[in-house]
Write a protein that binds this DNA or RNA. Structure first.
Length: 277
DNA sequence: GACCAGGGCGGCC
DNA sequence: GGCCGCCATGGT
């Protein structure tokens, strides 16, 4: 897919490998909305972008051009990924067709860690609600929106605050996150294998194997992971599985089969099974 | 009003 | 190591 950097945004040429609805509504990110014109607006860290559709593609209007070139993973060839995932199984072809313009976003590590601690045993609508309240209360006012809290802003907050914004029993996990400051900031996760990085992430309170895999995929861009939640467990037994396995065992089976394509495949399947239907 | 949601923790064996 | 009850909250 081709794109052009402009002074006020990014021009996306073609619609096959870039679909705002599929990218944003597939549960990898929780800070987006539709504006009065029906255009998607997406927020990451302190940045913001509006996605406008035109005849032959899209225009991502933003002041942070380089940030969103990376964020939307525009250097990766998704046609090639879809080609490699083609004809694995009829259901996989179906899923890729229904989520054809999905891209794995390169989110901010800290924002992703917080977001997916909140995501545990929760639903997407309420995850969005809690994160929205978090940003409105402590994020920097950027004019017409609020930034995600910086680590410094976030670590001032206590368990009582997190309960007030509706985090429920995850409040204590969020409040104790400041104790993992060193782990988050000074670990060179990118240089680690996914297995080693996962072992480190699981040390964080509220981060188990599934949340860790989401952090690896959406916050550290490691695609050889397969996050398995209730929906992916259903897909596994409906489409792949035979014997009864734990979720980490399902994840291991699927990463063994699909390697570095795992993260992409998982996202097509999640969108198809959990969101679209 | 029960059931569910991009699960994880602590106690138990 | 694996299993299991419990956990807050908002939507359906």
């Amino acid at each position: 897919m081709q794109y052009e950097k402009k002074s006020d945004g990014i021009r996306i040429i073609g619609k096959e490998d870039f679909n705002p609805e599929h990218i944003l509504e597939c549960g990898q990110i929780f800070r987006y909305k539709k504006n009065s014109l029906g255009e998607y607006v997406v927020y990451s860290k302190e940045y913001c972008a509006v996605i406008k559709e035109d005849n032959d593609g899209y225009f991502i209007k933003t002041k942070a051009v380089d940030y969103f070139v990376n964020f939307f993973d525009l250097q990766t060839d998704y046609s090639n990924i879809k080609k490699q995932l083609n004809n694995i199984a009829p259901y996989v072809n179906e899923a890729i067709e229904s989520g054809h313009g999905i891209r794995i976003l390169r989110g901010d590590l800290f924002e992703i860690i917080v977001s997916f601690i909140i995501s545990a045993n929760n639903n997407i609508k309420r995850i969005k609600l809690i994160i929205e309240r978090l940003c409105e209360r402590v994020g920097t006012n950027m004019g017409n929106y609020y930034a995600f809290p910086t680590m410094e802003q976030f670590f001032e907050l206590d368990e009582k605050f997190f309960k007030e914004i509706g985090a429920g029993y995850r409040a204590s996990y969020l409040a104790s996150l400041k104790n993992e400051f060193d782990l988050i900031l000074f670990n060179n996760f990118s240089a680690m294998s996914s297995d080693i990085a996962r072992d480190n992430l699981i040390k964080i309170k509220g981060v188990g194997p599934k949340v860790a895999d989401c952090i690896l995929l959406f916050g550290l861009y490691k695609t050889d992971v397969f996050p398995v939640d209730v929906w992916m467990e259903r897909v596994y037994y409906e489409q792949f599985g035979n014997v009864q396995l734990t979720r980490p065992q399902i994840s291991k089976d699927l990463t063994n089969r699909f390697g570095c394509l795992s993260g992409y495949l998982q996202q097509y399947l999640f969108y198809h099974r959990a969101i679209k239907k």
